[in-house]
Design a binder for these strands. Structure first.
Lengths: 224, 224
DNA sequence: GGCTCATGTGGACGCTGTCAACATTTAGCC
DNA sequence: GGCTAAATGTTGACAGCGTCCACATGAGCC
């Protein structure tokens, strides 16, 4: 290091990426300004353009980190239940239901903890192709995690295969909508306790929507 | 009109508002540039500042119109079923379930038809206070419409009062999340038919989540 | 007719992203 | 070790943005 303190920076690319993440965390997606990053890192404006094609390239890098953070939050939740279940095992159905809830809760965890990164992520999220997810992303795909949880619910017999159709979109929509409404929508400013209660209610509703009823076969009566 | 073709515009405020709406429709929230509006209307930059305190004030006006559009889309849906039911009446439960679905579908209708306005609306949406909604907004509040539909479901005996708790947030989250994912999220670019199918599945899931089961009393086993 | 106030204009400042030209430092090669 | 080429950082410029200020113009009122 210290090889020529000025001029050649050495780790400019990483430094810029770090600064970009910090800027977005502090001031949201619009807080990412190339010139400002250069200023923070102590380098001239335009230096960034030796490492990133344009602002969008910087956004992509931040989005990648945000995606990793989102995945981390979800996996942390899953790992926690896994650890808890090691002590006293529960029946597979309960376990599968629980895991789906935790996936959703982890998603919201991240959104609330890192609103800036979360918002940026969904202005730069890759389009999800018809079925083949999780192919490119090194870090894993939340959508894939969700699908696995749902498949599990089918496997243990809790979720009717007919109801399974489209359930991934329903679950994602519900949890994502909840996150968005709480982060940048009309539900922002909700007290933490109220938010938690509302989230638990939402997860219970989803659980109820997917659960097989003792009463009758798969109902899917959509309209008249 | 034509009173002094140049200089005094006469309807500058309305003209700017109209141009702002058009700009957002065409290029999204970021497409709203004060200077650009002035140019479009044929007036000098800065003229807008005689009628709007700042850019945000212009955003608020567009948000108001967007809200009206959203409400319109929902009410149009409701009016349509109302008309259809005039010919052959259905039982109250079916009717109430149908109305909830239409509310959600109208919401998505607007989001898909006017992505720019929809996106802007939810960066400037008023915070929803604990319970007393629909007080200020002249045009009505989507949240209130949703709550009425849910109360109706309780009244006709389809929705258990216990499950009713938090249902407004669950429904709003699900539909809003679906809209967001389709408008600016990873589900953008979904074919119209696929989107419609996914939406119907989502509405069916919600209907299933809220519906009373013949099997047992209100289950709300959330965890543990 | 003259005064006042609302409304529109022109110029400026600082911010942004991006391009082009220039400087310097590092690395490769003899 | 020294020369050259590529990588990296700097400076300057341009256009666009929001916003403030001073000024010009027009409309309405007395």
């Amino acid at each position: 290091m210290t090889a020529s303190a000025r001029y050649h920076h050495g780790h400019l690319r990483e430094a810029l990426a770090d600064a970009a993440v910090e800027a977005v965390r502090e001031h949201g997606p619009d807080g990412l300004a190339v010139r400002d990053l250069a200023r923070r890192v102590g380098v001239s404006h335009n230096a960034a353009y030796r490492h990133f094609a344009d602002r969008d390239a910087l956004v992509d890098v931040v989005a990648e980190r945000a995606m990793a953070g989102l995945m981390g939050a979800m996996e942390r939740r899953l790992a926690a239940v896994e650890a808890a279940e090691a002590d006293d095992p529960v029946d597979p159905v309960h376990r599968a239901r629980r895991r789906l809830s935790e996936v959703g809760a982890g998603y919201v965890d991240f959104a609330v903890a890192e609103p800036g990164l979360f918002r940026l992520l969904f202005t730069a999220y890759p389009e999800v192709p018809d079925k083949d997810l999780g192919k490119g992303t090194e870090v894993g795909d939340p959508f894939t995690v969700l699908n696995l949880a749902l498949d599990d619910l089918v496997a243990v017999g809790y979720l009717d295969p007919v109801v399974r159709e489209g359930a991934e979109i329903t679950c994602w929509s519900a949890v994502h909508g909840f996150a968005v409404l709480n982060v940048e929508g009309p539900l922002r400013g909700l007290a933490a306790a109220d938010r938690e209660a509302a989230l638990q209610a939402l997860l219970a509703h989803i659980d109820g929507a997917l659960g097989t009823r003792p009463g009758g076969g798969p109902r899917r009566g959509r309209r008249g």
